[in-house]
Design a protein around this nucleic acid. Structure first.
Length: 559
RNA sequence: GCCCCCAUAGCUCAAAGGAUAGAGCAUCUGCCUUCUAAGCAGGUGGUUGCAGGUUCGAGUCCUGCUGGGGGUACCA
């Protein structure tokens, strides 16, 4: 249980005890929220319940706070309870509780920081899912990094997570792609096959066509045009998927499942959903199209499932796909990571859930804002239709996966990111990711040097933690104690940037500890202290590795 | 037109309705014969876009403006 929640329970117990003793009048308790004071002098946690209760109790906040503090039950984690004007109740963590975190981390470093929000329920995180019609551009990098980190955070928060890439291999985009490839292929063989405006203009299509021509020769030139386009569609898709996999790989992202949109239509899922919706009278035919009656659930309009042409619309795919996720595959929860230009689509998703008879709460659509790329002070367009595409590979090769991941994860989801390519490259030394990694490398270095000087792990594993007590040591431990709360917050808000900022804070307090507290001393009198500090350093290093792991950033042993 | 998001230090961004709004970069001043100076300490820098409102308390919530981005198809 998080200390914060323990403290909330203490406050409730104290309020009730005070009421029972007649020190406070009876009133319904407001929701008890325990905050983190910004100023260290105000302790580690604070409750503002006295201010919130002043009106209910018809008493001065300060008097309420004092009454509550008087009845506060003792707790091992809490060393002191203080009341300060205008009525804050402040809590200070006990030193031995803080040093007690070290054996906890030593016992199971990988689970320290984990919380249990998910209770082992399943959660699918679906992300990237870019149209497989070209290489991944930098807009997808944000999606990729955010989705992967959210997946990692949810795992740490007690969910069993499955990572999925939704392959939009059906529909008009795919058709356009195949037609473009067909024309580029013919041109590769010297035929006259001009592109039309709606075709993909990017030069990667030329590369693709040349690869196809190299591998398959001219055999499609002699086939029926539609058959050729169909064949090229599949061949091109496979090649593009190679690119996409490679780009994801570069960002250290691995999917458990690559799910084909086309399969929804080929394996009968779509038909089953339609039958079920019609049976429940949730569709109607109007203007030659078949509509899902989403207005019955409060939407401002109905949505087309089957167009008058007989072709299913994209909303039909959403319906069938989420039916597959929840009903056929049985995920307890699904998180879809979408760019903000899908906001309108996102708004419609709860209606879809209701139409399927599912609890909309089980589906989260995480919208993140755009990435704008700049080079030489000018915006570079990402569009697949322009020739100038900035791919993930290009940027990762230039800047490195760690820098790209950290940079994209150091902003909250709803901010527009202006990514300056020149700056990203030259900023190598100034990038905050190096600051954080440097702290980890420094710890590794201390442990290495310790071993060289005779402090093998076994020689300090039982160091006396009671010797810790220097303010910088305790500040470091306090920051370590925050991790579970940060993980919880990141999981609830689906916002990994909390971890990126936490990592920088942890690095800062570690560097302060490094300055103030010499771990390895030449004075034999300090040996016992060194042993205790080595335990602290090793535990901190493990926490760093955990945090960096949640961000998908490597934790280097040396730099 | 209507809907959504954003506006915080010179720049890039944080800040679960709480106490004196914080980091990094940039800039200025100091600190390496001892565990990594990719570091540390300190200085400069703010009417949180504007105007109201709710609240004991507002950067945060509500209303109206201004400016920027996105969205408003039988396209995905």
């Amino acid at each position: 249980m998080l200390v914060r929640n323990q403290i909330a329970d203490l406050v409730i117990a104290a309020l009730q005890a005070a009421q029972a003793a007649g020190d406070l009048p009876p009133f319904d308790l407001p929701p008890i929220e325990i905050g983190r004071p910004k100023d260290a002098r105000h302790g580690d946690y604070a409750s503002s319940v006295a201010m919130q209760s002043a009106k209910l109790a018809r008493m001065a906040p300060l008097a309420i706070a004092e009454a509550v503090a008087r009845h506060m039950p003792a707790a091992a984690a809490i060393a002191a309870v203080e009341v300060l004007p205008p009525g804050f109740i402040n809590f200070r963590l006990a030193d031995d509780w803080l040093t007690g975190l070290i054996p906890q981390i030593e016992a199971d470093a990988t689970s320290y920081g984990n919380v249990d929000l998910g209770h082992g329920h399943t959660c699918q995180v679906e992300f990237i899912s870019a149209n497989p019609t070209g290489p991944l551009h930098m807009g997808s990098a944000r999606n990729a990094v955010l989705g992967d980190s959210v997946a990692r955070v949810l795992e740490a928060a007690g969910w069993v997570v499955q990572r999925e890439y939704y392959l939009n291999d059906a529909g008009t985009q795919m058709r356009t792609f195949a037609e473009t490839l067909w024309r580029r292929y013919r041109r590769a063989h010297g035929q006259d096959a001009p592109l039309e405006a709606h075709h993909y203009q990017g030069t990667y299509m030329v590369d693709l066509a040349q690869r196809v021509a190299a591998e398959h020769g001219d055999r499609f030139l002699h086939a029926d045009e539609e058959a050729a386009i169909a064949a090229l569609s599949q061949i091109g898709l496979d090649l593009v998927m190679e690119w996409i996999r490679a780009a994801a790989d570069k960002l250290r992202i691995h999917f458990d499942c690559w799910f084909s949109e086309k399969s929804l239509y080929e394996d009968g899922t779509f038909d089953r959903v339609m039958t079920s919706l019609r049976g429940a009278n949730r569709t109607t035919v109007r203007d030659g199209a078949e509509w899902l009656l989403t207005s019955e659930y409060g939407a401002d309009r109905d949505e087309v499932l089957v167009r008058s042409s007989g072709q299913p619309g994209y909303y039909a795919s959403d319906v069938a796909y989420h039916y597959n996720k929840f009903v056929l595959r049985g995920f307890d929860r699904v998180v879809d990571i979408w760019a903000v230009d899908h906001q309108n689509q996102a708004r419609r998703m709860p209606y879809l859930m209701q139409a399927l008879g599912l609890d909309p709460q089980r589906l989260d659509i995480l919208l993140y804002d755009m990435v704008r790329l700049y080079r030489d002070g000018k915006e570079v367009k990402l569009s697949k239709r322009s020739g100038d595409i900035i791919t993930i590979d290009e940027v990762v090769d230039e800047v490195g996966a760690d820098a790209v991941r950290f940079l994209l994860l150091t902003r909250s989801n709803q901010t527009v990111i202006d990514f300056d390519l020149n700056l990203a490259v030259q900023q190598n030394d100034e990038n905050p990711v190096f600051y954080v990694q440097y702290a980890h490398a420094r710890m590794a270095s201390i442990l290495r040097t310790a071993a060289e000087r005779g402090f093998e792990h076994a020689s300090w594993a039982n160091g006396d933690l009671a010797l810790l007590g220097h303010p910088s040591e305790m500040t470091l431990l306090r920051k370590i104690a925050e991790l579970p709360e940060i993980v919880e917050k990141a999981a609830i808000q689906l916002a990994p940037h909390n971890l990126a900022f936490y990592a920088q804070e942890l690095a800062a307090v570690f560097h302060a500890f490094y300055r103030d507290c010499r771990v390895l001393s030449s004075d034999p009198a300090d040996t016992e202290l060194s042993r205790a500090r080595l335990r602290l350093v090793a535990a901190t290093k493990a926490v760093f590795a955990t945090v960096l792991g949640l961000l998908g950033v490597t934790a280097p042993e040396s730099m």
